[in-house]
């Protein structure tokens, strides 16, 4: 208990800073860091049969792209600095999913960047950070 810190990332600068900050925090507390990249996805959309048929393939591609372009570079950086860290890519609604992982993995605190990747997306969906601040069950740090 209390030895897990989670940081939710996307491909924005604030989230890179958040990852760095979380790593420092983890090192000073001798905690383990969990880096989670969430791909926006909802189960409630309307698709064509062809979209459904090739969904599995496209999902693999999405995960692979997120892993190789964003997650792995960050993980490599943090590992070099001596952080105990692991990371994974998930599909879902970011705030909801992060909260779920907190409950499931008994995470003691969350770090998150203030603004997400897309400006327009934030207007439409609301910032993940502000949603998290309102719904999180554990202490949360928002990195500007």
């Amino acid at each position: 208990m209390g030895n897990f810190i989670m940081v939710g990332i996307d491909d924005s600068d604030p989230s890179k800073r958040a990852a760095q900050f979380a790593a420092e925090l983890a090192r000073s507390l001798d905690a383990k860091l969990l880096v989670v990249y969430v791909i926006q996805w909802t189960p409630f959309t309307f698709n064509t049969p062809e979209e459904n048929e090739s969904r599995h393939k496209r999902r693999e591609e999405e995960v692979e792209a997120a892993r190789s372009k964003i997650l792995t570079p960050i993980l490599d950086d943090l590992l070099k600095a001596g952080t105990k860290v692991e990371g994974f890519v998930r599909h879902g609604r970011p705030a909801k999913l992060l909260n779920y992982i907190v409950a499931e993995k008994e995470i003691s605190q969350i770090v998150i960047g203030r603004t997400g990747a897309g400006g327009l997306k934030n207007i439409m969906f609301g910032s993940v950070a502000s949603k998290m601040v309102q719904t999180s069950s554990v202490p949360i740090t928002v990195v500007p």
Partner: peptide, 15 residues
């Protein structure tokens, strides 16, 4: 549906 699994992101029951 387990939100924290590889199942998320595949074609959902609703879809």
């Amino acid at each position: 549906s387990n939100p924290d699994s590889d199942e998320a992101g595949e074609v959902s029951h609703f879809q």
